[in-house]
Amino acid sequence: MARTPADLVGAQPDPPFEITFDGRRVTALPGQTLAAALWGAGILAWRTTRDGGRPRGAFCGIGQCYDCLATVNGEPNRRACLVPARPGDAITTQEGHGHDRLAV
């Protein structure tokens, strides 16, 4: 059986909690970023591009490339690879810039 990063460093995290992705329940550990929690659940894409609607998720994983933008608790353009998961966080797939409701 594959060892997890938590096994490798002998981590003893506090109890897991739940977040949601487009309404689906996802388990996260304290200290995990949203991107890590989503990846752990097998979710690789949580945004679509402005031109063409192509799927995007974490790319650099260190806050530099801005590919992993997600809408978190209604706020668009959060970098999922940097934002720590908190109990009850609701991540929703971000369509493009995430500001469609402002369009005139």
Binding site: R50, N77, H97, H99, D100, L102, A103, V104
Partner: peptide, 9 residues
């Protein structure tokens, strides 16, 4: 600003 839809015409 961050990219937005047309908010200023």
């Amino acid at each position: 600003t961050e990219p937005l839809p047309r908010v200023v015409r």
